[in-house]
Design a protein around this nucleic acid. Structure first.
Lengths: 179, 179
DNA sequence: GCACTCGGTTCAACCAACGAACCCGGAGCT
DNA sequence: AGCTCCGGGTTCGTTGGTTGAACCGAGTGC
């Protein structure tokens, strides 16, 4: 349950989605998971999110079957998108495209997504998430993302400088772990 | 700004979308707007949302250019989706489809969306929001929605009985005002 | 045995959501 | 005019989630 318990009388699909995704930070955590972030500390450094909140959101997402928690070293766990979690990609992508169209220009941070596994050669996705070359709706795992302004430095943005932000300045295959 | 002010260092599209849409209730308000709900009182009755919160969310959405506030009678205003607001449809739709796939079966409340203005005759939209008949991604205004279980009454759900819920049991063109 | 890191939990202060009560302008009646 | 009702809010005390700093504990490295 997100904040209150009153979504339960909203017997519709968006309300059920919000039961899991509607809490603060949750969608940003998932975006990072799609970018290949998997560790507690990396999420924390990239998002500037309070430890307690991050722990709570990750537990909720694991509970909901969106993320899977698994050990990568004795005593160390990582969080990975499940199949259900990967299915969220189109929703996240269309949301991102919407805000891209509204505030173009300043703010930067734009990203492109290319169908890397495309039999027809691949191209940047359309607004609807379709690959214009092959006409399909590619899954997140077959996409590559790149920043539109890899070394913009006009001082307007403080330029984050954690490991995740630096890695994301270079083209990167979605979902696969960052370096 | 939704809850805190820290989204501002997240220079990416999802974060900017969440600045507007990320607050509790906002997406449910917008869903109702797509269903044709326009009046403060109708939103309140359908959503069981506190008056103060609804007033705040509507003001935020008007500020963001997603809704337009306009008088329909002396002293009475209604809230209507702007062009930018209508563009949100694919994002809302894909989110809804995602939760539909996860929890099928119990809970009901499923809805179908048909391309009513389709030159090829129209059909229920695919998961990606495409019309399978004509292959396009139709705008919200050319869709018709209908409930999958118009008169389910097994007692498991308390069955909402406000004017909006009743109207939504019948097929209805999106965005156009409810009766 | 000591320091360091990762991945948390705990705790007090703060701030947003909730819901009941109050408020205001316009329309309709008398 | 005065009274009432209705739609569309605002005010306000209480509840409950968010925040950030401090603390904790297991695992390595030295």
């Amino acid at each position: 349950m997100p904040l209150g318990r009153d979504y339960d009388r909203q017997d519709c699909a968006p309300a059920r989605a919000l039961e899991v995704l509607g809490e603060r930070w949750t969608l940003l955590v998932l975006r990072d998971c799609f970018f290949g972030v998997r560790r507690f500390g990396d999420l924390r450094a990239h998002l500037d999110i309070p430890r307690a909140v991050l722990a709570d959101r990750l537990a909720t997402l694991v509970d909901a079957g969106v993320l899977e928690r698994r050990p990568y070293a004795p005593g160390r766990d990582e969080y990975v998108l499940t199949a259900d979690g990967l299915d969220l990609w189109p929703a996240l992508f269309t949301l991102a495209r919407w805000s891209d169209r509204l505030r173009v220009g300043p703010g930067g941070g734009g990203r492109r997504f290319r169908h890397a596994d495309c039999p027809a050669g691949g191209a940047d996705l359309t607004t609807g998430g379709l690959c214009p070359a092959c006409g399909t709706l590619p899954p997140a795992t077959s996409l590559e993302t790149r920043s539109l302004d890899p070394d913009e430095d006009d001082g307007s943005r403080p330029e984050r400088d954690d490991a995740v932000s630096r890695a994301l300045r270079h083209p990167h295959r979605l979902v696969t772990p960052l370096p």
